[in-house]
Amino acid sequence: MTNIHQISIFLENRAGSLAEVTGMLAESGINLRALSIAESADYGVLRIIADDAEKATAALLEKGCVLSMTPVTVVSVPDEPAGLSEVLKLLAEGSVDIEYMYSLFTHQNAKAYMVFRVADEEKFRAVLSAHGIGLATKEELGLK
């Protein structure tokens, strides 16, 4: 089982708050593999997959960020039309409730990579393995 950790960071909804966080990461030489933002009127949650999660976390905590670590699953899907659609169809049939998902920046071996956060991880994994859908490894994604 690939253990990939997403870092979620609390952001105030104002100009410059995202730049502050990416600035902190840049300073520490962290490269981002994926990023997504969810926002409400007053605040947002920035979710990232960093090449070195441990180092990134330490740097952000030191700067006083509020964050949490969440295990997520990265699924490799065929990088072609309907590649994602097919996977999502299977998950729907298996009644897997997706909380959120976003895509990874890497393209390798004609694969695209999607980050999934689901309500029931076990059920999710079962559907994937039943259909032979592959999970990305840390090496594949260039993660430490």
Binding site: S8, Y43, R47, L67, S68, T70
Partner: peptide, 15 residues
């Protein structure tokens, strides 16, 4: 101020 205990990756949980 948001605290680590009350923070979550899920917007709806924060809500």
């Amino acid at each position: 101020e948001m605290t680590a205990e009350n923070f979550s990756d899920s917007l709806s949980k924060i809500g």
